[in-house]
């Protein structure tokens, strides 16, 4: 387990799960970026996707359901030398962790957020997720889901995210190339990844995605925010994958002088004489 490869181990995923390709693409992306396992931190919440940190040789933090982002951004702030990647599901990211999703787009810490979006709750056995389509019948939504699905790509662009992409686990090479770009982006990068759930989602299957997704080509300009929002709303017979929006903006650690200029926070020394001097505030 301790060689310099991001070797995978036995997983708790169903045979044929879309997660396998995401894991493989992640490994490919990290190797292409010449990262070493100890330089990378993979953070998950709870769920099947959130077990990703367990299956890759890197630092791993599997925290609470919905709370991967707060832990991940703080770890990055504490040690800016770490490459911090969140791998977790649509329920974790947009449901339980919806508030953190909103505010960490605003915070813009230099982390990458890969959402394994299978439009269903897998580990709890098939209930609707925030991205489940209207009419989708589940064990709880017995007459079909009546709530409108959340569009994470549109929401992220609206919130001001600087890197927003959509990808499909069925196209591993394309996914890996987007992952490379997302990890390299300086700031919060969201990649919403279509991930067929072979057990609980019989609507959004591999074939369903495969027949709809199309790759954005060079003619698409991802720097135009309004056009990007229009592109993000394309849904139905044709769904675009690729980098939907991209904008360079200062990341969190670049907006705080001592984080930008100094060593990683974890390596900073405590100046006791200076702190002792604060007692003059109380004289």
């Amino acid at each position: 387990m301790c060689d310099m490869k991001f070797v995978t181990s036995e997983t708790a995923w169903c045979p044929g799960c879309g997660n396998f390709n995401i894991l493989e693409a992640l490994r490919m992306a990290l190797e292409r970026l010449n990262k070493k396992p100890h330089e990378v931190l993979i953070v998950g919440g709870i769920g099947q996707a959130a077990k990703t940190p367990q299956y890759i040789n890197a630092n791993g933090f599997c925290g609470l359901h919905g709370r991967a982002l707060p832990a991940a951004v703080a770890a990055k702030i504490a040690n800016k030398d770490l490459t911090v990647i969140v791998n977790t599901g649509d329920g974790d990211s947009y449901g339980e962790g919806g508030n953190h999703f909103i505010h960490n787009v605003r915070r813009n810490v230099d982390i990458t957020h890969f959402v394994h979006d299978n439009q269903i709750y897998g580990l709890t056995k098939g209930q609707a997720s925030p991205t489940t389509g209207v009419g989708h019948v589940t064990s709880v939504q017995t007459a079909g889901t009546i709530n409108e699905p959340l569009n994470p790509v549109l929401l992220a662009i609206a919130l001001g995210a600087g890197f927003v992409a959509r990808a499909f686990s069925g196209d591993k090479e394309h996914l890996a190339s987007i992952m490379v770009e997302a990890i390299q982006y300086k700031g919060y990068a969201l990649v919403d990844i279509f991930q067929p759930c072979v057990t609980f989602n019989r609507i959004n299957t591999f074939q369903w995605y495969n027949s709809r997704v199309y790759k954005l080509d060079d003619s698409y300009d991802p720097t135009d925010r309004i056009k990007a929002m229009e592109k993000a709303m394309e849904w139905g017979d044709r769904i675009p994958i690729g980098v939907i929006y991209r904008e360079e903006k200062p990341a969190y650690c670049d907006k705080i002088g001592f984080l930008k200029e100094g060593p990683p926070l974890v390596d900073m020394q405590v100046d006791m004489d200076k702190i002792k001097g604060y007692m003059k505030d109380f004289i």
Partner: peptide, 18 residues
């Protein structure tokens, strides 16, 4: 953004060594 984030951030930072 809320106290849940506050404690999870503190835990993430502590894990990372500060």
């Amino acid at each position: 953004e809320d106290e849940i984030a506050a404690i999870n951030m503190a835990i993430g930072a502590s894990y990372a060594g500060v």
